[in-house]
Design a protein around this nucleic acid. Sequence first.
DNA 1: CCGGTGTTGTATAACGATGGAAAAGTCAGC
DNA 2: GCTGACTTTTCCATCGTTATACAACACCGG
Lengths: 341, 341
Amino acid sequence: MNISLKDVAARAGVSVKTVSNVVNGYRHVTPATRQRVQQVIDELGYRPNLTARHLRKGRTGIIALALPELGNPYFAELADAVISYAAGLDYIVLLDHTNGRRDQEVLFAQGFRARLIDGLILSPIELENEDLLARGNDAPLVLLGEREYEAPHDHIAIDNVAAARTATRHLLDLGRRRVAFLGARHGRVRRVAHLRLRGWRAAIAESPGAAAGDELVAATDGYTRGDGAQAMARLLDSGVAPDAVFCYNDLIAIGAMRTLIERGLRVPEDVAVVGFDDIDDGRYCSTSLTTIAPHKQAIAQAAVDALLARLDGGDEAAQADPRYIRPGFALIRRESTLGRP
Amino acid sequence: MNISLKDVAARAGVSVKTVSNVVNGYRHVTPATRQRVQQVIDELGYRPNLTARHLRKGRTGIIALALPELGNPYFAELADAVISYAAGLDYIVLLDHTNGRRDQEVLFAQGFRARLIDGLILSPIELENEDLLARGNDAPLVLLGEREYEAPHDHIAIDNVAAARTATRHLLDLGRRRVAFLGARHGRVRRVAHLRLRGWRAAIAESPGAAAGDELVAATDGYTRGDGAQAMARLLDSGVAPDAVFCYNDLIAIGAMRTLIERGLRVPEDVAVVGFDDIDDGRYCSTSLTTIAPHKQAIAQAAVDALLARLDGGDEAAQADPRYIRPGFALIRRESTLGRP
DNA sequence: CCGGTGTTGTATAACGATGGAAAAGTCAGC
DNA sequence: GCTGACTTTTCCATCGTTATACAACACCGG
């Protein structure tokens, strides 16, 4: 049942290596031999054993993609894009999730799947710079997303500050003056939502009449709809009364909208809402969601390309300085800020 | 940089096999030797080469999970559950998507990743029975989801007929009489949404006053929100005027609600809506979605357990008759049928 | 007809791990 | 001190593939 090169070779009356040569399309094989071998291959239904090939070549053709959670549609859609693009380049993607927990992220960065994967694309949340520096692993690593590090790795991320500023300015341009920010992380305001928060501040600072107090910034525990709903509720209970909300991501925005509607507030008349990610859900909310759309396709391609450049590009490419690649983004205007047409 | 058993053995002054014994926790190793070897392992940062181990053992410890699309939150959440559960059993999950296309599903069933994976969990959409019978691959296969086959493979699925009947009856119990079904597939009504459609028919047949005509059944091209929105629009345009809709899945339901709201119809006052899958989105729609909640955790566990039973259970388990396992489900009542409390 | 050149095929040794058998070491009992 | 029984360690083959080196052969010009 398990056909190996040896079996084919015996049956075709040639050496193992000749069969290997045929399988790999090596040039110097007479058409006659090639045909005979090929026929036996088809006859026996031979399929190369990838494991053995990988062992011999020192490469597996597998790259890992570690995302915080697949339940978040943004990451699911991104994963989809990465898998498809990598498949086109004959690479297999091993998808995994870290739950956004530092210990798990460290585990991946350390390469606990060492020698099974050729390289890793990681979207960190809690990972610290020191974790990266302590990394005792030579497989290439590409970082994805908002967090910034000073470790020597390629990094793919849209310009989060500019994107957040664009989103916030959109709200200010509509005449809103009390624009809240939803989704800073408890106890670590300066970390995870750092860049988007900075963009928010920048836009507000440019707009004379806009309220800028810290009471407009609401923290969440995570990045789910539930977190958004709770944070919005807390914000309203605290008496802040914003007339617009810019949310760390679409899920939080959707949760926030849900709370607003439950409280009898209208979106966007009473409170306008902008999200971030452009997940499919946002388009079909009963009030469709205005959002920042990072170019997922471009992000996926850039990440895979960066990784493969270091893998397949030879020594000079492997040693090249880390690159910071910034795919584009767009503001998608929908009903949650413009109202129903 | 690439430390192998040999390096550790040389440094520790023992044989390769002894190091292997230590790594694998073999019993007969003196504490002194074990400690010395362990120390060198830590010192050099040795990590076993999984590829080599797999080659030798004939097993990779990797199982594949092939789902139609990760963009659908139901599948993303299910994948999450499978990965976590399998990880607890020391199995790695290779996640892939078929786009619900027959050629891709056939490719997976045929095992194009032969010898890289020990087994496969597949959620088919277009795959035909003959494809399964023609399968020339000995790796165990577990099927997931609504489609039913007569091929000898384990199958995990909730009772779709009963679930659909429960959902439809819920609508009828609320006094609705014109309950539409959204999500039959164009040109193949008897295939993909077969069971759920049957459940719908059964519930309606039991309810004397309920309309039962085929004009209440609307087809969709796919299973996305967009498909649901379009199908709902077509249904309304055709003048059917339902007072309730049971949808093939939550995404279609969310799309349908979107269309209803755009047309100025109220949910649930004018049209009540029930979905299927219990994805997170449904809970946070501005009108939260009543739905059938398959027990995803149970499905994931059953699928992995069934696969591993055939893998690790020895010959008698591998040859056992195929099993049809039916995890439970629940009707989750929310605003799209009950209205806002 | 010889030697050089170029093509086609083969034998053998890896890659890094594990399994089984053989060898070496330990220890009690007489 | 020797035997026998048991524990610990080593040696060798092996998984399926590819790389390297080389053998075999044909072809061509001189």
